[in-house]
């Protein structure tokens, strides 16, 4: 199995939207490598003809009737928001100024 480089770990952190300190990156690189080495043995057992299982029990879509029903009020939905304004979530800028 490929060993995982510090650059690869930094890339993963960007994909996962995680700011990591340099020492966290160092530490995690070693640990991820060790864990991936240990779990790679799953490749030994599962042959091509084995179907994958994504869920323990057979599940099917569950639908309800498309009828109006009570839901959260704007006040309760916003009560836990880090910032709110005019009955809406206030978020930092999403697009850069040039966009």
């Amino acid at each position: 199995m490929p060993s995982i480089s510090r650059e690869e770990v930094a890339h993963l952190a960007r994909l996962a939207r995680l700011d990591l300190e340099p020492d966290e990156l160092d530490h995690l690189s070693g640990q991820l490598d060790q864990i991936l080495g240990a779990v790679a043995q799953v490749a030994e057992v599962a042959a091509d003809d084995i179907p994958p299982t994504s869920h323990a029990l057979p599940v099917t879509n569950v639908f309800r009737d498309d009828l109006p029903r009570p839901s959260l009020t704007p006040e309760s939905a916003l009560a836990g928001a880090p910032a709110a304004e005019d009955g809406r979530f206030r978020v930092p800028q999403i697009l850069g100024e040039e966009q």
């Binding site: 199995m1 993963l12 994909l15 991936l36 779990v39 790679a40 799953v42 490749a43 057992v45 599962a46 042959a47 084995i50 179907p51 994958p52 299982t53 994504s54 323990a56």
Partner: peptide
């Protein structure tokens, strides 16, 4: 992530079948 999905997640899901 692409490139590792089959070797890791895909294989693990097969093991899940074997355990069941």
């Amino acid at each position: 992530s692409s490139g590792y999905y089959d070797a890791y997640y895909g294989q693990a899901q097969k093991v899940r079948t074997l355990v069941a």
